[in-house]
Amino acid sequence: MRRDMLPWNLLGIVVALGAWEIGGRMLGDGLLAPPSSVLAAFPALLRDGMAEALGTAMLQMLVGYACALLVGIPLGVLMGRSRMADRLLHPWLSMLLVTSTAALVPLFILIFGTGMAFCGALVFMASAFYIMLTAYQGARGIDRRLMAVARSFGATRMQAFRMVLLPGLFPYLVTGARVGLVHAIRAMVMAQMFVMVGFGGLIAQSGFDASTAGLLALLVTIMLVSLALNRALDATGHRLAPWYRASKAGH
């Protein structure tokens, strides 16, 4: 987002909120609660333990997401740097990328039950392959000439990895982590909604309320959490490697 466009960004947000408020008042709380009613719904939700449910859900999500990073990044880099690994792993990557997480839900319930393992496994399957794909694209795109230069200056394999490959790869890893996070949060909510527990359970149950204010408050909450986590990853990436944002890997 460019800075000189900031007034237009704000205008868009104000118009959207205004339209929601007016539309909500016309349609009523049963169909679309306006932002004012949604704000008023927060105290009751917090009293019902929304914050605790959200905390537990995020923790479960993070376990699956961390596993996805630990598996996805090395495999993606390996695929990008070794032609043989690419040939062997590519068909699996393509297949698992198009596999809908939703389709895995009934299968995983039979395999893992409905507890934490189920949620973690679903999050893993939803995010690992996007992370792997981005790492693969990054590792493949590293300029051969750069590696050759490093070698001709007498860099060891380890040095070439640390000084050429890693800095070039880093922007892709951050992008992969951000894309993976979006999918991880989606999968977490999906898992919990299906078995009606935790934060996702709250969303599923609020569908039976007479007013949509509670439901919308939950949606706004998860939206804000997702935006905040994404922004945090972006900021961390920028801080660790200032060249990351300039390269806009994978965008």
Binding site: G12, I13, V182, G200, S206, L219, M223, S226, L227, N230
Partner: peptide, 20 residues
């Protein structure tokens, strides 16, 4: 520029949460 923030916000909502 006006639509992008709204789109980003909507995108951050897990789609399955729209089911109710």
């Amino acid at each position: 520029a006006a639509v992008e923030p709204v789109l980003t916000a909507f995108y951050a909502i897990p789609p399955v949460a729209l089911v109710p």
